[in-house]
Design a protein around this nucleic acid. Sequence first.
DNA 1: ACCAACACGTGAACC
DNA 2: TGGTTCACGTGTTGG
Lengths: 204, 204
Amino acid sequence: MEKVGSADLIRRETKKAQPLTRSPSNAQEHILAERKRREKLTQRFVALSALIPGLKKMDKASVLGDAIKHIKYLQESVNEYEKQKKGRTLESVVLVNKSQLVLDELHKLSPSFSDGNRDYSSSNLPGIEVRVSGKVVLIKIICEKQKGNLIKIMGEIEKLGLSITNSSLLPFGPTSDISIIAQKTGDFDMKVEDVVKSLSYGLS
Amino acid sequence: MEKVGSADLIRRETKKAQPLTRSPSNAQEHILAERKRREKLTQRFVALSALIPGLKKMDKASVLGDAIKHIKYLQESVNEYEKQKKGRTLESVVLVNKSQLVLDELHKLSPSFSDGNRDYSSSNLPGIEVRVSGKVVLIKIICEKQKGNLIKIMGEIEKLGLSITNSSLLPFGPTSDISIIAQKTGDFDMKVEDVVKSLSYGLS
DNA sequence: ACCAACACGTGAACC
DNA sequence: TGGTTCACGTGTTGG
């Protein structure tokens, strides 16, 4: 990366009396190496141009320019996707809080809680719904497909003092729709809100 | 992109007596233009290298190579993100809200529930929830335990142009908690609201 | 002294 | 017939 500019013309004249411009045997070797270098260069140029969609001009300059543009575009896309990803997990927390708010509002009226989320992005993460009928509890969860998720959920449920009597897992796209029936045991006296909260917390 | 190879040396010797190697006035202009071209080239090279993270060698060849590698990586990432997007559309979220709205509009149905405070064993109309993820549809229904209810529901679902792939029925007190996974077939293009409405109507 | 990488000037080809 | 792009050989420099 040394810029000689146009002032080296003079230098070249004066430097004519160098010991040897080039060793005669090495001369050919030099031009061969350079040839190989250029070859590799152009090869990479075509390889790069093949990765750029909708490339009109096959100019080296245009290839470089469009490559730059394309990389910027891709990077931007990736950043947006990542942003959305981050947003999702955050929404999940909000979602839980919201549901609890709803539950508190409807506290006496209906314990049924749907994971309705008004925000545009947050699609997943546990939608939790708990219903109670006498001593029977119905728990419905929609969560990411993950190894051991069901076991973890069941463990959490039984930890709460519930005895599972029925369970069902249906694969639904990238998520699993899990329904579980359980019986209250002994001194179980949790409110549904607490059940939802405990399960949400247990699945993080 | 014409390869002359090393055979042009002879040509150059024989072609010595060409009418015009170059117009004398144009000669300098030519080398100037070429200078400018190279200048632009190297400029784009540095611009490109600036976009590549973790670039060790500032070689032209390395810049091109790493640019290729990086573009491939980014493209792959974008593809994966897009793939995920396809699966978990925000459709499901919106649809859930919509379906709830429909339900609220039709009847403020609140499924049977007993918290100790109030007990709403409500209308004979079931609770219906529909989610869509790509070509897969998840239908959840809570309805009274009745003979042939499941069959009737399944019949209604298949009438709508859906193909059932999974189903689950869990007894929950006096009601049944039914979950069904179905695939869209052919020209199925109903909105979830209509699905909910049809099922509600079909179960009376 | 070698090797690798660069910029330069130049002739040719293609609109 | 200019204008633009290319590949080539060559001189030069830093490690």
